[in-house]
Amino acid sequence: MGGVALRLEALSRAREAADVEALIYNFFNLEVLLKVHPLLLKGFWMTIQLCILVVPLGIAGGLVVAVAYSFHVRWLNWLLIAYVDFFRSFPPLVLLILVFYGLPFLGIEVPSLIAVLIAFLLNTASYYGEIFRAGIESIGRGQREAARSTGLNGIQTMVFVVLPQAVRNVLPDLISNTLEVMKFTALASVVALPELLRMGRVAQGLTYNPTPLIAVALIYLALLWPIVRLLSRLERRTMAKR
């Protein structure tokens, strides 16, 4: 009896060891990683480039939306709200595919990077716009009046008095949205843009080993985790002030 139990235990221990070995072989295979790391590096740079293009574009678009809203022209505001809500109801992936496969049917041939940028701009500008709008609305009328009473014009008042305060009031939302935008860039893999996720999948296909996918996930974590931490801190601080 004792012998059987002992043998069973040894067997399960062996199986465990085999499991760990399989896990390392499939997920943390250094040999595979060494082979495909140039691909991943290429993808990583593409992802960084995408972020560097998409985030400022979206912020600029959002500012245009929010500042246009702040004039409080009724028909214009209806239009802006409609724009914002329209794109907030639209999954970014659907938008991306629609722009990517739709534009050529319209006879417009653009490089895939441009198609991706157009889709992301339409999407992110609506989110940033909504955030900046809330920020601008949170600044009391007295601030504008004080600025105008000293001779600042409308644009100077917006740039030097309203926006600095507005941005500070909605900083957590801005960072949170920037995190979302950076995550969105992974969607570009669906339209074959050679960014990090795409390159990870290519590498997996070449090596028949999922290690590159795990590496991709870890790279995203390293890139975005600090932002998540920062955000948790900021959110807690703003909430405490309420």
Binding site: G140, G142, Q143, E145, A146, A147, R148, S149, T150, G151, L152, N153, F160, V161, P164, Q165, R168
Partner: peptide, 28 residues
């Protein structure tokens, strides 16, 4: 805007710019 700088105004609720120092408020 050119005329307004010749007409100073002081408000009931001060309306100082909270993101600027006293000197920043005065010099903007």
């Amino acid at each position: 805007n050119e005329m307004r700088r010749h007409i100073g105004m002081v408000f009931q609720s001060f309306n100082l710019y909270p993101h600027l120092s006293a000197l920043g408020n005065v010099t903007l």
